[in-house]
């Protein structure tokens, strides 16, 4: 289900209808200016995962979905890692400070690491 969505995430900077191009460029500028570097690091990682996920999805649709469990675990690892990283981004984002009173950025990273490790454990268990 994240397929269409991830595609959308990467689409605004490249393929844009003319009437919204202004908005997009503004979005881009605003993003470049306002986002802290650490968040940019996260976003870079997110972009990489999206790329990987999309590749796998395309391969699945175009070539083969066999073995299905391998696809699920590969694709699932992309999705899982993506949402975990996105969660981390939300938690460390200074703008969201008020929402996450109980979660300090350090705690957020520890949570993220734990979640990722559990995720990768299941992924590799399911892969073969």
């Amino acid at each position: 289900m994240a397929g269409p969505k991830t595609a959308k995430l990467s689409s605004p900077p490249t393929t844009t209808p003319p009437e919204t191009s202004v908005a997009v460029s503004m979005l881009w500028e605003s993003y470049m200016q306002q986002t802290p570097n650490r968040l940019k690091l996260i976003d870079a990682f997110l972009a990489f995962i999206v790329l990987s996920g999309v590749t796998q999805f395309v391969y699945c649709v175009l070539v083969t979905n066999f073995p299905f469990n391998a696809f699920l675990s590969g694709f699932g690892s992309s999705i899982g890692q993506f949402v975990l990283t996105a969660s981390l981004r939300a938690q460390v984002n200074p703008q969201n400070r008020s929402e996450f009173k109980d979660v300090s950025p350090e705690r957020a990273f520890a949570d993220f690491a734990l979640g990722s490790i559990v995720l990768h454990f299941f992924v590799f268990n399911f892969l073969g």
Binding site: I49, S52, G53, T55, Q56, Y59, A70, F71, S73, G74, F75, S77, S78, Q81, H120, V123, F124, L127
Partner: peptide, 10 residues
């Protein structure tokens, strides 16, 4: 590709 995907993610 799936193996590669999973490993690259890790």
């Amino acid at each position: 590709p799936y193996y590669a995907g999973a490993i690259s993610t890790s």
